[in-house]
Amino acid sequence: MHTAALKAEALASGFTTVRICRADEAWEAGERLAEFVAGGQHGSMAWMADTLVRRQHPTAMWPDAKSAVVVGLNYGPDIDPLAALERTSEGVISVYARNTDYHDLMKKRLKHFARAFVDKTGAEVKVFVDTAPLMEKPLAAKSGMGWQGKHTNLVSREHGSWLFLGVMLTAAELEPDAPETDHCGSCTSCLDICPTQAFPGPYKLDARRCISYLTIEHKGPIPVEFRAAMGNRIYGCDDCLAVCPWNKFAAVTAEMAFHPRPELKGPLLSELAALDDASFRQVFTASPVKRIGRGKFVRNVMIAIGNSRGTSLLPVVFGRIRDPDALVRGAAIWALSQLSPDEAKAHARAGLEVETDPEVMIEWQRIFDSARTG
């Protein structure tokens, strides 16, 4: 199958862009990943360490892979994601998660494209949309779709930072495209804007400090040192993507499935905090938010409420201090200490007397200690 026809087929399948690279050549991405894991910068994402060997190179996962067809789907927002950070009574959900889970949509299209490719070539294929130990971003950079910027995410001259990626590995030998060169230059906007200073240096990320990691992957209480920096971000963070100058060339996505649902454009923290397990699942049906569960999500909401400085939200906080989920209770106690330190101190002794979860007791003890020393 000629590469021009293959690319035309991919675009006809609904993808925004498509490029090709060799999947069996040596690359440096595997070494960088090993250093990342060895330094513990993957945090509690144990699956990265568990699958490290397979993840280091496409052929480590599938020895017969010869070529990679990388597809991208634009999800460019119609607003500046940074503007929502000023509306502190609302929660900010990352642009990619405000509607349908992109994994489902892209996987369906990629399978359709792959079937057509197999019918015409007879070559073996495997498709991936963040569903296996495969490094999509290095492959996309190798294919020329863009380059990995100083924030480690893919940047495209045509689409900015807003591309979902999928990969079809194949045993067929296809003509590769030329890789893209790095066009970041001296710009450090993505590094400078990070609220938690999650970048030890250009092209390096410490996931343990990243708000996307903390709000989505991190299972326990949010470390105290990062709570204020989270602001009203309750699922993910777009700051380093949104500030990239290359976004001036990005277009608003044509996919209605990626346009934000009205109820997720600027959801009120007070309403999100009131979600029980059933209502959480209902609100986030078919959304990637659903996978983190109600406990972690409302934990994030309570941190955002604490950062809002909105005393009108105190009744909401009191409603969660006796929440069945210890993760939520702990975050609610912290929110109370931020909104009304005096009330928090008044409740600290009673809270210590009735609490049994050690992590939540720590939150009450912190308030009690500050009352004694203050």
Rank of each mutant, 00 (worst) to 15 (best):
H2T: 13
T3I: 13
K7F: 05
K7A: 08
F15T: 08
T17Q: 10
V18T: 14
V18N: 13
A23L: 07
F36H: 13
G40W: 14
H42C: 10
G43K: 12
H57D: 04
V71C: 13
A84G: 06
S89L: 11
V92Y: 12
Y96F: 14
N99W: 07
M106D: 03
R109G: 15
K111T: 12
H112M: 11
R115S: 10
V118F: 08
V118I: 14
D119A: 11
K120L: 04
V129L: 06
A132L: 11
G146Q: 05
Q148M: 15
G160Y: 05
L163H: 10
L165P: 02
L169T: 05
E173K: 14
D177H: 07
T181F: 05
T188V: 02
S189Y: 02
C190Q: 03
C194S: 11
P200I: 09
Y203P: 01
L205V: 04
D206M: 01
T215L: 06
I216K: 05
E225T: 14
A229E: 06
N232D: 10
C240M: 11
V243L: 08
H259G: 01
R261L: 09
P262Y: 06
P262W: 03
L264D: 11
K265G: 00
D276Y: 03
D277L: 09
T285C: 06
R291W: 09
M302V: 04
G306R: 00
A326D: 14
R329L: 11
A331I: 09
L336V: 11
E343F: 01
A346M: 08
I362C: 04
W364T: 00
F368C: 04
A371K: 12
